[in-house]
């Protein structure tokens, strides 16, 4: 079966069939379309106004690599100034290699890179130290619990450090789709209530966050990186257990095999879900220690650090489990800080 010719330029041989439209395109036409679509998302969604200083959360992985590359292409037209911000969680071996990839990228693209380390931000705690401290308490999962809370905070701090007005992350359509599947499978109504949007406007002093790749499928992100010959880091974090997300991910992959638009269809569903007012998170206040958004006295990051300092990290996480129904402050703080 010979490959059809590109439906756009009608000359080159098609290199892929686009999941969203079924259209067969050649590599260059696909890349152009991909970039134009990200531009469109940013413009139509009014995500990044001209003059914005944008902190790109760079992990060295495929999504943030593609995001940074595309935004760099579009920056002059959109009037953006880009800064790469990478977070060093302090995970021996894994993070060093990923950060090396980010450094190479920054150098090649000529973009300023700032690396913020957990160790410096959070009183000497690295993820490896946290992992040792939480060992024996259902390690993998609580590691990721800590890391997620702290990384969000670290990225925010890093963005402020470089004078950014906006934060962007590389979440793609598959990420959003997996999340909505997973939240249903584990009954997380509070998180469902806020999902779906393109980002958050930045209430309560937090920087506005957005995800310009939200409508791009994982497959297209990977193929874009391939056709543009982008060099990215693709190893699994040593602490990633991902047990439950694993189910959602596998399901999504199977759904996409049956109907290629599945990821985008799920994003549409997520955009439109309407939940009862009772499960929507309340308006947050400020953390009494750091001033960040919090629904309780301490924000999630401070509460976790507080628990670590007292040598009772488990308690810091465990507390929220006892909250009736509601998913606890981590989600509210998170909701408020940004709709991720």
């Amino acid at each position: 079966m010979p490959a059809p010719t590109c439906a756009s330029c009608h000359t080159a041989r098609a290199a892929l069939r686009r999941p969203r439209s079924g259209q067969a395109l050649c590599g260059p036409c696909f890349c152009t379309a991909f970039e134009a679509e990200v531009l469109h998302t940013v413009v139509a969604g009014r995500l990044l106004p001209p003059g914005a200083v944008v902190a790109v959360g760079a992990s060295g992985g495929k999504d943030s690599t593609v995001l940074a590359h595309v935004l760099r292409e579009l920056a002059p037209r959109l009037g953006l100034t880009l800064r790469l911000v990478a977070v060093d969680e302090g995970i021996g071996g894994y993070r060093d290699a990923a950060l090396a990839a980010v450094r190479r990228q920054a150098e090649r693209w000529g973009l300023p890179l700032t690396i913020v380390a957990y160790e410096d931000l959070f009183g000497g705690w690295t993820m490896d130290a946290v992992a040792r401290s939480t060992a024996g308490t259902g390690r993998g999962r609580s590691c990721c619990t800590f890391c997620g809370v702290l990384r969000r905070r670290a990225l925010e701090e890093g963005a402020r450090l470089v004078g950014a007005t906006h934060v962007v992350t590389g979440h793609n359509a598959d990420d959003v789709a997996e999340t909505v599947l997973m939240n249903f499978l584990r009954g997380d109504a509070a998180r469902l209530a806020r999902g779906g949007g393109l980002g958050s406007a930045g209430e309560g002093g937090a920087l506005p966050r957005c995800r310009p790749l939200q409508f791009a499928s994982q497959k297209e992100v990977v193929l874009y990186a391939h056709f543009r010959r982008l060099d990215y880091f693709s190893e699994e974090c040593v602490y990633a257990p991902r047990a439950f997300r694993g189910h959602a991910r596998e399901l999504l992959k199977r759904l996409e095999a049956v109907r290629p638009t599945a990821a985008l269809d799920l994003v549409h569903s997520a955009e439109r879900l309407a939940l009862a007012p009772a499960v929507r998170p309340p308006r947050p206040g400020a953390c009494s220690r750091c001033g960040a958004l919090a629904s309780r006295a301490l924000c999630q990051a401070c509460a976790l650090l507080d628990g670590l300092a007292r040598g009772r990290p488990r308690l810091a996480i465990g507390e929220h489990k006892h909250e009736p129904r509601d998913e606890g402050p981590r989600s509210r703080a998170q909701a408020a800080a940004a709709a991720f």
Binding site: M1, R13, L223, F233
Partner: peptide, 29 residues
């Protein structure tokens, strides 16, 4: 360098000097 979906997937008959690339989308981010 073309998506196998365009070429018959499992039924594509290999030719001498073909290149076949497998990219995982499941790792890292």
């Amino acid at each position: 360098d073309a998506d196998w979906e365009l070429l018959g997937e499992l039924d594509y008959q290999l030719q001498d000097q073909d290149s076949v690339l497998f990219i995982s989308t499941l790792h890292g981010g």
